[in-house]
């Protein structure tokens, strides 16, 4: 693993951890990966190793203010800065180490990638992958109703919400908590947009040990939210894979099947994997099995070991023929 510090347009250095494929077989395809909210790239090393083992280079990127990247933890300068960072990272690799590029991420990292596609288009990409995409700013996409969902439903549809499905205790342990009052204040008063309005669960001690960021500002939340997900998915023309656990605490299990059927083109090269029993975090283990295979099917070569075995078999066949 090799860590690159890539400068963003404002000079902030972004840490990108490069997991290269086998040294004797240079990769033809590079995957850029953006981690989920609160975490950093460290959590996804196994996924990167699984892809690298199959002959793909994977680059795990720390968001600004997260992991080893520079920047203020839990906030960003303006709404949309994170997709600009994605663009800067892509430009860096395009200039210094050109290779076909597959973009994706986990949870809110997927949302950043979708925002990048919306703003910058998909010309520089050859594929995309989204693991449990964090599309939580819409009523229909979330698994459980939050405290403000009744009012939001009435505002959106002008009728009473017919049902209310609150999160159970077990799920609440994993879901971030939003301070709605501070959120509304930040909408009205721009100078409050750097104050913390959302808190991720978990003890502060453990979070410190894991290098997690537990408090997010309005600017950062707005930079990872994507309300017009339908339009972005509709414009995707690249091979795409969606991976999600059926027990995901955040996403409604019916959401991605609906996106797949209604918002991705009928003739698009698309795949959907809804993995039973896996939740929002354990789905990363499932993705470590599915993503490499999806890559091999499109851009891959047989793994080195298999290739060596094939070569040995061929040599044996030639030798046998010569003997015969």
């Amino acid at each position: 693993m090799n860590t690159l510090m890539i400068p963003a347009r404002d000079g902030t250095e972004l840490a990108c951890h490069q997991y290269e494929a086998q040294p004797d077989r240079p990769a033809q395809t590079r995957l850029l990966f953006f981690h989920g909210g609160s975490f950093n790239s460290r959590r996804y090393a196994n996924l990167a190793k699984a892809c690298a083992k199959q002959g793909f280079e994977m680059v795990l990127c720390d968001w600004r203010g997260h992991g080893e990247s520079q920047g203020t933890a839990g906030t960003c300068d303006y709404i949309g800065q994170l997709e600009d960072d994605v663009a800067d990272i892509i430009s860096y690799f395009e200039s210094n180490q050109p290779m076909s590029l597959v973009l994706g991420g986990h949870s809110l990292g997927s949302a950043i990638c979708l925002r990048y596609i919306k703003k910058y288009g998909q010309q520089k990409l050859t594929g995309c992958y989204f693991i449990a995409p964090g599309i939580s700013s819409n009523l229909e996409s979330v698994r459980y109703d939050g405290p403000g969902s009744k009012a939001s439903f009435r505002l959106r549809f002008w009728r009473k919400k017919p049902s209310f499905n609150p999160a159970p205790e077990a799920a609440l342990k994993h879901l971030p908590k939003m301070n709605n009052r501070k959120f509304l204040m930040a909408i009205m008063l721009p100078f409050l947009r750097h104050t913390k309005i959302m808190n991720f669960p978990g003890s502060a001690k453990m979070a410190k040990l894991e290098g997690r960021v537990t408090d997010y500002s309005f600017n950062l939340i707005a930079s990872v939210s994507i309300t017009d997900y339908a339009q972005v998915f509709r414009q995707i023309k690249l091979p795409i894979v969606l991976i999600c656990g059926e027990a995901d605490e955040m996403l409604n299990p019916l959401f991605l099947p609906t996106v797949y059927q209604w918002h991705l083109g009928p003739t698009l090269d698309k795949q959907l994997h809804m993995l039973p029993k896996l939740n929002h975090m354990s789905v990363i283990n499932g993705a470590s099995r599915i993503l490499p295979q999806w890559l091999i099917d499109r851009w891959g070569q047989a793994p080195v070991q298999e290739q060596e075995q094939e070569q040995e078999q061929e040599q044996e066949q030639v030798a046998q023929e010569q003997v015969a």
Binding site: L139, E140, S141, R156, F157, W158, R159, D228, A230, Q231, N252, L254, F255, T258
Partner: peptide, 30 residues
């Protein structure tokens, strides 16, 4: 559930529908 309910999905066309759909049909929430 709102996500796979044609009635709610029709109302969402106002926010997520194509331009042509909203040109021909009046789909505001009211």
């Amino acid at each position: 559930a709102s996500i796979n309910n044609v009635l709610d999905a029709m109302q969402r066309l106002f926010y997520m529908g194509e331009k042509n759909t909203n040109t021909l049909f009046k789909l505001d929430p009211v």
